[in-house]
Every structure is written in structure tokens, then in C-alpha cells.
Amino acid sequence: MTTPAELIIVAVILLNLSLAATGSLAGCIRLAAAQGVIAALLPLLAGCGVPVGTLAFCGAVILLKGAVFPWLLTRARIKANVRKDAEPVIGYPASIILCLGAFAASSWLGARLPLPETARVAWIVPASLSTIFTGFLLLTTRAKAITQVLGYLVIENGIYIFGLALFVEQPLMVEMAILLDVFVAVFVMGITIFHISREFDHIDTAELSALRDWEPGPDSSGGIRRDEV
């Protein structure tokens, strides 16, 4: 029998793939938010009973990840006048293949990790590991600063799920601390991005690196040109 928790895990993995594949910034923000909300539902379904404390905590997480973060990020996106694509450094096929490979590797790893026998939901460890990897993928292969914030958010989702898998007794304490960190991080990033874009007219991280002392070489012209397409 497929449990709702398993369905959530499948949805989280599919969201990872779509995050790696989506080209638009707004779409990425929505997908990360959806992932956060769905993952927040997990403690309600994985455990046997639903204490009031857990309920309140899940409500807070859903509010934060589903409403506050997306709102902050969208605001930063609009204020910084970024409406274009996420500008991935690697293409769609490569992202998808990396993501799939990460999932395959995490399922291999998950089967070998010496975890306590508390992971009752199938695939919870591979899902969390691959979510963390997807976050790293967003961090490293996207040009925009906003996507880097998104990457942290996705990593946080992964850690949250991993926490559920590891410490079913005390997951909420760990999660609370991390969530607080990320909240501050998003807040600071939002402000910084806004200020950077006001100063430099763009938030492209590749361009920011051009601030160091560096001179491009002279362009060659004339004759037969050979290049890789």
C-alpha cells in the first residue's frame, strides 16, 4: 500500500528535477516554495499521532516557506528588476542527468549509511540527500544571486527531510535552529541583492567577479576563424 508519506517523497524528488530543469526565476521560486510546503507536511503523516506542538510547528514552517520566503524573494526579484531566465551555466539535459545521477547515488548511499532504524518511510534518506544536491546544483550552476538564495532554501528543505529521517524524536529542535539561520540569510540576501542591483544595475554573479583587475585580451580579426560551435 502506498502511504501518503511515500507520495510526498516522490513529489519532493520530482520537484527536485523540475527545479533543476526550470528556466524561469519565478517558476523556481514557486517550485522551491511548493517543495518546502510539501516537506513540511511530512511530520504530520510520518508519525503515528499528531501532537499539538507538531501541528503548530508545521503551520509555522508552511507559513514561512510557503508565503514569507516566496514573498521576500519575489519582492527582491521585482525590485532588482530581474525578470529574465535563471541563466543556467549548464543546459537542461546536463542538469537533469546530474540530478538523476545524484538521486541514483543517494539511493546507493542511503542503503549503506548506518542509520538508526527510525526511517520508516521508504526513500526518505535518498530524497533528502538528492534535495541537498539539487540545492548545491542551483548554487553552483546559476548565474543570478537570487537563485543562489534559492539554492540555500532547497538545501534547507533537504536537511529538514534528513532531520526527519534521523531524529524522529527530536527533529523539530534541529529544524528550528536551521530555519532561523536560513530566515536571517534570506532576509540579508534580499536586502543585499536589492542594494547591489541598485549600485551595479545587475545581479549577475559572473559580472561581479569582473570587478577584480583583469583586462580582456585583444580580439583577433580577419582570416579564417575556427571555433567550437
Binding site: 520530482l14 530543469a21 538523476l100 541514483a104 539511493s107 521508504a122
Partner: peptide, 18 residues
Amino acid sequence: LMTALTFSILALIFQAGR
């Protein structure tokens, strides 16, 4: 079509864990 391929591979990986 790569999405279709991804779905197939995911289905295979999920089945491996059952």
C-alpha cells in the same frame, strides 16, 4: 523526451527499493 526518459529511470529506481 528527456523528461520521459527521466520518468522511466525514476520508476526503475523506485522499483529497485521495493
